[in-house]
Structures are given as structure tokens and as C-alpha cells.
Design a protein around this nucleic acid. Structure first.
Lengths: 143, 143
DNA sequence: TTCTCTTTTTAGAACTATTCTAAAATTAGA
DNA sequence: TCTAATTTTAGAATAGTTCTAAAAAGAGAA
């Protein structure tokens, strides 16, 4: 347990600010999904928490991820390469890049994306953009 | 059975051109997914075929949709509002619009979309664009 | 503290979407 | 018409997620 920053005031306060009671399980999940993993699935959370909470229930993980999403700490995404729901701790508008080699998802800041639509049939409220391809020597980026 | 254009030469030939043996089930599925439905799920195919093939197996529907995709007649998509896989008979590059009222998916021709990326980290092979919002008085469009 | 009430966690059942399995039916070609 | 390969089928299996109801934990009052 000593390896987990469960007592991190900022994390605990972050949950409280969002009216989420900071239980031990929720802090452990928050530590991973909000600070470590960028695009976490329930499975990834479970795998990561194994050493701290070997008996944590998948239901708790799903409950918590869904709660965090409802409270605005995470945003849900589905990507074409996987049946899993991904929980992204970047809740600001941004695009994604899927590396077809590693199946890894990277964030692409909207400043780098230029998108427009000639249209008179619908009112756009949101756009989801997924670039697919392969990483070059420079490596991925995020944020 | 008389309501189904099962004997349509063009449909049968289309399958043959793609090295797909035109069985009765496949023709019935093709009639729907290639000519009627734009973004079909297995469930929608089953529902539509009920009157023609009340005992068709879901496995046959999935087998056929996956075969059509492999042969290039359909393209698979996953959208954020549904856990179902959607099979799109428009296999050319295009964007999508999701009407949040009806949960209906519409095609958006790429000519209407302008997208570019300032990037030096990855080689783009494909882009998926999903606009979300509501239809205006003009109604949806496709193709 | 202790009591009580509410919230959270849990294991396992249930559910949804899809794939697998192995046997039966269909088909194509000799 | 025979044979071998392909396709279809029902139902089991699998994957991912949600539901259920009971146990545990937590918050606030007395």
C-alpha cells in the first residue's frame, strides 16, 4: 500500500471537489486513471490495482469509472479496434491517433487539427476525430 | 419470398464478382445491407429478414456480414452511442453524422469536410470523423 | 463511543453482442 | 448421382458490462 499515493491531498481534494466520496478504492482507481493511465479500460484498471487491491470487484471498477465520467473527471470513448470502453482523463476537446502497430491511442491537441464542414442540414455539437496509421521515429505525443 | 428481389441479376452478379457464392440467405442479406439499409447491425438484418427467413441463424448473419466486409462490400464501424458493430455499404472514404435525437447515422461526403493535421509524429493512413448534433429542418443526407 | 441511516463494495448472476462448434443441409463439379 | 467442399444451423461459449442483494464501511446524531 505504501507505493500508492492514496493520501495525496490533491487527489482526495479533486474527488471531493466533484462531490465524490474519496474511499480507498476510488482513490486507488483515481490514482491510476487520472494520473497514470491516459486511456484506461476497466481491464487495465483491474490489472494495475491487482497488487494493491487483489480482491477489488470489477463492479466497483465499472461503478467508479462511470461515476467519474458522470462527474466530468473522465470521458468515455469507443474505438474501432476494441470492444472495450476507454476512459480518457483528458476531458477537453481533442482528437485521437491510433497506432495500428501497437494499438495504442494517443491524444492529438485540437490546435494541430483543422476541421470544417460545409453543411446546412445539421447543427454540430461535437466532433470525434480518429487518425489511424503508424508512429514515425519521433514517437507519440499526448495532451 | 416474392417480395424479395432474390433473383435480381445485378445483386447475384455482384456477389459472384466478389467470389461470394450467392446462396439464398446471402442474397437476402445482401438485398438488405447493400440496397436498403445504409448502416446495418446484425440485429437490424435479423429483424428485416424475419418475414423471409424466420429461422435464419444469427451466426449466418454475422458470418455473412463479416464475409461481405472481408470481400470489400461493406465496411465496419463502431459508434460511441451503441455497442453494436455497424456495417456500412458505403466503402468509399466519408465522414458520419450522428443525430443525437434519433440516434440515426448519416453519411457525410468527404467533399464537404475539410480536415488537416499539423503533425510530424505519425504517418496517417486513414481518418474517421464523426459529427454529433441534431438535424435541422432540411433533414439528413447520405452518400 | 454507539446507534442508525445511507452509501459503497462485493461476488456472482444476468445480460448483450459476437464468435465458436460440430452436426446437418446444401452446393458444385466429376 | 456421388463425393467433397462449403454453408447453415442451434446452441454453447466467450467477452464486456450491468444488475442484484447482501455485507461492509462511513457519516452524523445522540
Amino acid at each position: 500500500m505504501k507505493h500508492l499515493s492514496l493520501k495525496s491531498p490533491s487527489l482526495k481534494e479533486k474527488l471531493l471537489e466533484h462531490s465524490i466520496r474519496p474511499t480507498a478504492q476510488r482513490l486507488a482507481i483515481a490514482d491510476f486513471v487520472l494520473q497514470k493511465g491516459r486511456h484506461s479500460t476497466a481491464e487495465m484498471v483491474q490489472e494495475h490495482l491487482k497488487k494493491f487491491f487483489p480482491h477489488i470487484s470489477l463492479a466497483t471498477i465499472y461503478n467508479t469509472l462511470n461515476l467519474f465520467s458522470k462527474k466530468g473527471l473522465l470521458k468515455e470513448y469507443r474505438f474501432p479496434h476494441s470492444g472495450h470502453v476507454f476512459f480518457d482523463n483528458n476531458t477537453q476537446p481533442h482528437a485521437h491517433f491510433l497506432d495500428e502497430n501497437s494499438q495504442e491511442i494517443y491524444d492529438v491537441p485540437m490546435e494541430k487539427v483543422n476541421i470544417s464542414l460545409k453543411n446546412d442540414s445539421f447543427e454540430i455539437q461535437d466532433v470525434e476525430v480518429l487518425f489511424k496509421g503508424t508512429l514515425t521515429n519521433k514517437g507519440g505525443q499526448s495532451g
